[in-house]
Design a protein around this nucleic acid. Structure first.
Length: 474
RNA sequence: GCCCCCAUAGCUCAGUUGGAAGAGCACCUGACUCUUAAUCAGGGUGUCCCAGGUUCGAGCCCUGGUGGGGGUACCA
């Protein structure tokens, strides 16, 4: 422990710790065999042996009431001088809010009707040396909530719910895909050539191979290699990394679901993502309607579809079929979107879309300009078979009919290379396509963002246990 | 990266015109054998984020920095 942090409150607890040790009792216990969890204990009327963290203490002389909490629930315990005797009762006096304790005794009802354990014996399992956040107002300091998430979890039921839902959502998504014959796979996160998306990668180094590696910005190119290899339906749920700005919607590492299905196209992916999200909403939220940040969201099908072209024309008077990139850039600038570089980027268009899509219920924007999607199959010369899904004004998913023509793929990579400079072409990916990849639909779904939506969270940091922060000075 | 906002006790927060650092909870001492935001009596436990500056005097004003939040840019 850092000396600067040893304040009066910690000193007090340390001296209690010493007191416990002096009485010959180990303040940090080991295995403790429970008969019930607290969620169960509240239901029984018998002798129980349970354990948990002391969340509240109400001492009145020769009796003490305490609230005990474990992962399943909470129960009141009753400690009395008469039952324990002076020595044991005084030992209990050395305990504080935050300590872990195991207790044994009969469950009874107090005068006020609360199920309570009449403690016949107790075991100190862990002495806490720091005070917990205040019980009534909880922990509000956002910085402490993220840096010391353990405190946030102790203090807030709501936060615990978010991460329970997160776990359930991912489990349900896996189940749903498994049931439909999709194979879960794991592809490299350390990649020699980062591909499958636009984005700046993190660079790292492998010492024995003496090679630079990148944390993946997407699993896409590896998943498509698996289609070449003969797996027809694959998915991966895991982290991707982008060395870019951090915001309420962006964390440097984020969780994405990518799904690929042979012999399908983006229309099939549209159906798939609709069904998946509706299934998740019905399982987790109990229906298709919920609110996100005060906005009513309704997932009832059919979900609105609008082409990229229509959106731009209606909302901003920009006719992408008539314009080249330069004039498109100009019009987007004048529509109030700030642009850093010289040319319009995919994300500038997305922002424009997000602005336009005032309707908060699901909207598929389909058929993007081909120059924005080098991995998508073209519908015609200008348009690619692609959609992006927006819900609640937030981009959630992205899908294409996957380009499986190796020669065109190389050309499209070359075009991009011109735009972005040093981009390296993944030759093995092209080679794989040259062996033949079945036509396929591919989908990427931002899991963190979906969880934000389902938990009504305004920031991605609320749904990531340990969001990225600058180092703390301790 | 740029712009705006925030930082006071363990936690949640007040702090007036620049004039002796406060409250509730937590904590400590004492009383109390069915309480539950226990109660009663007493106690303030502090690097006012950091470093400078202005001033007789700075939590407050100025400059720089650190950390966080929001927006914006790059991106998903």
């Amino acid at each position: 422990m850092h000396m600067a942090e040893v304040n009066e409150l910690v000193k007090e607890r340390r001296s209690k710790l010493e007191g416990i040790r002096e009485s010959g009792i180990k303040p940090y216990g080991g295995r403790f065999q429970r008969s019930h969890c607290l969620g169960e204990a509240v239901e029984v009327k018998a002798k129980v042996k349970v354990a948990g963290r002391i969340m509240a203490l109400r001492r009145h002389g020769k009796t003490t009431f305490a609230d005990l909490r474990d992962g399943s629930g909470q129960i009141q315990i009753y400690i009395s001088f008469d039952l324990l005797g002076e020595e044991r009762y005084n030992l209990f006096g050395k305990l504080d809010i935050g300590d872990f304790v195991g207790v044994e005794g009969e469950v009874f009802k107090t005068k006020t009707g609360e199920r309570t354990i009449k403690v016949e014996d107790f075991t100190i399992l862990s002495k806490s040396l720091r005070p917990l956040p205040e019980k009534w107002h909880g922990l509000k300091d956002v910085e402490i909530r993220y840096r010391q998430r353990y405190l946030d979890l102790i203090a807030s039921e709501e936060v615990r719910k978010i991460f329970n839902l997160r776990s359930s959502l991912i489990k349900l998504a896996r189940q749903w895909l498994d049931e439909r014959g999709f194979l879960e796979v794991e592809t490299p996160m350390l990649q020699p050539i980062p591909g499958g998306a636009a984005g700046k990668p993190f660079k790292t180094h492998q010492d024995t191979l003496e090679m630079d590696l990148y944390l993946r910005i997407a699993p896409e190119l590896y998943l498509k290699r698996l289609l070449v290899g003969g797996f027809e339906k694959v998915y991966e749920i895991n982290r991707s990394f982008r060395n870019e700005g951090i915001s309420t919607r962006h964390n440097p590492e984020f969780t994405m679901l990518e799904v690929y299905q042979a012999y399908a196209d983006y229309q099939d992916m549209m159906k798939l993502v609709e069904e998946l999200i509706i299934h998740l909403a019905e399982s987790l939220l109990g229906g298709k309607k919920f609110t996100y940040q005060g906005k009513q969201i309704d997932l009832t099908r059919p979900w609105r579809q609008i082409t990229f072209h229509e959106t731009m024309k209606e909302m901003h008077g920009v006719d992408i079929e008539e314009e080249d990139i330069e004039s498109l850039t100009e019009k987007i600038r004048s529509a109030g979107v700030k642009l850093e570089g010289e040319k319009v980027t995919r994300s500038a268009l997305i922002r424009l879309l997000e602005k336009s899509l005032s309707s908060t219920s699901p909207t598929f924007v389909i058929d993007y300009p081909a120059f924005l999607c080098p991995l998508a199959k073209k519908k015609d010369d200008e348009i690619a078979e692609r959609f992006e899904l927006f819900i609640g004004g937030c981009e959630l998913a992205n899908a294409y009919s996957e380009l499986n023509d190796p020669i065109e793929q190389r050309d499209r990579f070359e075009e991009q290379k011109g735009d972005e400079g040093e981009k390296i072409i993944d030759e093995d990916f092209i080679r794989a396509l040259e062996y033949g990849m079945p036509p396929a639909g591919g989908l990427g779904l931002g899991i963190d963002r979906l969880i934000m939506l389902f938990t009504d969270s305004p920031s991605i940091r609320e749904v990531i246990l340990f969001p990225q922060l600058r180092p703390e000075k301790l």
